[in-house]
Design a binder for these strands. Structure first.
Length: 436
RNA sequence: CGGGGCGUAGCUCAGCCUGGUAGAGCACCUGCUUUGGGAGCAGGGGGCCGGAGGUUCGAAUCCUCUCGCCCCGACCA
């Protein structure tokens, strides 16, 4: 993308409404614009980030054996009356009436709909287990939206739902998602710690929430510092081995980690003092086992092996995809701007042509740009060097490739690593070899 | 939902108390100079002062109503 023709409206000054770092930086870096309270438009660079996160989430869900699908944003009220949640959910649910006076709602979550789909399509225990997911916009009419996309009313969520014939199976599904989540957050460059959680309005008795550590987080958290050392991406845990998954679950539950609501002072005291960590955190995902909470009232039964009906055991598993954008920035920024992890950055590199119009610089910058095939942002604006450096730092590209008149004459460029500030003076070929 | 605050140019804000030709900085456009950390000079464009009523000869300014947004608290992917 060429910055001279891209809609990436960076701001020098911070808009008055933004209080926390991620919100300020998302607006200043031109990722989003607010269109109403808690509702945001994703501009080109922000949309690329959202897609990168979605891609990683999708890859890990698929690896765990979940199947992607897509459910509608609008749902009929009747479905929710069946589960009893139409009245229970309260004013957070956006209720809509169509021209025929039928009650609809903009989905805040999809347990009812997926259960309805499952009961009409699944007839036999042989078709289980199933894990289905989609990445879809949700709406929850929060009383007080704030913190930009971290606490918006409309948000993008990955929600998965599992169906199993019995509790043992449901536990396996639950643990599969646990492993998928640990891997996903790690790939996103985050340290997300699973903590035992309340099950809330969704119900059930087995739940973990995944908390990213950040000073501006909404929850107070306590955890064992050993969580900081686990590497789940390279771990030997296998999805298709229930005993591996059981070991993982035991490992996670074996170390102390809790939000203030679930904090247990007695257990906390048993953690060696040197390993006790306290801080603030942002919830970026939660997994639930809730048994037959929906399959029962919605009469979802499948034929069992001996011909009698079985009511499937269910779980649901959410990741706040759009919230993650804010959470990642909260966890990774400095005075100058965002520091994107490589995996989610809107552009792998920014090519800063410091002297647009000068033949050697232009040629070098264009040559580099072509090699990246769309993965790089070319700053070809007629701006001074300082403005380009400032914007590149603000936007947080993992790498800056600086094409200046001095080095360009010698066919060399300067590479700057945003996260560390390291600089490398390299030939064009060496620079490309390093980044591609 | 309780409490507080703010709506004036794309952004940050002044002007309002004490009514009288709508402002500044940044951004934008033109030109010249400049060119490795948000340049300088000159010229220029851009506003139904959130909206509706009212008071007044006259309203950004005073009054009433309304809409929107933000912050603190109680609640949440």
């Amino acid at each position: 993308m060429r910055l001279s023709h891209a809609l990436i409206p960076t701001l020098k000054q911070t808009p008055a409404e933004a209080q926390i770092a991620s919100h300020r930086l998302m607006l200043r870096a031109g990722l989003v614009r607010q269109t109403a309270a808690g509702i945001y438009a994703w501009l080109p660079a922000g949309w690329r980030v959202l897609q990168n996160i979605s891609r990683i989430v999708r890859e890990e869900q698929d690896r765990a054996g979940a199947q992607e699908m897509l459910m509608p944003t609008l749902q009929t009220a009747d479905l929710w009356r069946e589960s009893g949640r139409y009245d229970a959910y309260g004013p957070e649910m956006l209720r809509i009436r169509d021209r025929h006076e039928r009650d609809l709602l903009y989905g805040p979550t999809n347990e009812e709909m997926i259960t309805d789909l499952a009961r009409s399509a699944i007839q036999s225990y042989r078709e289980l287990p199933q894990i289905l997911y989609h990445i879809q916009w949700k709406f929850r009419d929060e009383v007080r939206p704030r913190f930009g996309v971290m606490r918006g009313r409309e948000f993008l969520m990955k929600d998965a739902y599992s169906f199993d014939v019995d509790y043992e199976g449901a536990l396996v599904s639950y643990r599969r998602m646990m492993l998928a989540y640990l891997r996903t957050f790690q790939r996103l460059g985050l340290r997300a710690i699973p903590m035992l959680a309340d099950t809330g309005p969704i119900g059930g008795d087995l739940s973990h929430e995944f908390i990213v550590l950040a000073p501006t987080g909404e929850s107070q958290v306590f955890y064992d510092s050993d969580f900081e050392t686990f590497d789940f991406e390279k771990s030997e845990f296998r999805y298709d081995d229930p005993s591996d998954l059981e070991r993982l679950h035991a490992l996670i539950n074996g170390y102390y980690a809790a939000t203030s609501e679930k904090h247990d002072e007695a257990r906390w005291e048993q953690v060696p003092a040197a390993r006790r960590r306290e801080g603030r955190g942002i919830e970026v995902g939660q997994i639930f086992y809730f048994g037959r909470k929906y399959s029962d009232p919605m009469k979802f039964g499948v034929a069992g092996p001996n011909g009698t009906m079985i009511t499937p055991e269910m779980g649901s598993y959410g990741i706040g995809v759009s919230r993650l954008v804010g959470a990642i920035i909260e966890a990774s920024h400095d005075e100058a701007g965002i520091i994107w992890p490589d995996s989610v950055a809107p552009f792998r590199a920014a090519i800063l042509n410091l002297r647009v119009g000068e033949a050697t610089c232009d040629h070098l910058a264009e040559t580099l740009y072509a090699k990246f095939a769309g993965a790089a942002l070319l700053d070809d604006r007629d701006e001074r060097a300082g403005a380009k450096f400032a914007d590149a730092d603000l936007m947080g590209h993992p790498w800056q490739i600086i094409v200046g008149p001095k080095s360009a004459a010698a066919g060399r460029v300067e590479l700057k690593r945003r996260g560390t500030g390291e600089r490398f003076d390299l030939s064009l070929d060496d620079a490309l070899a390093r980044l591609l």
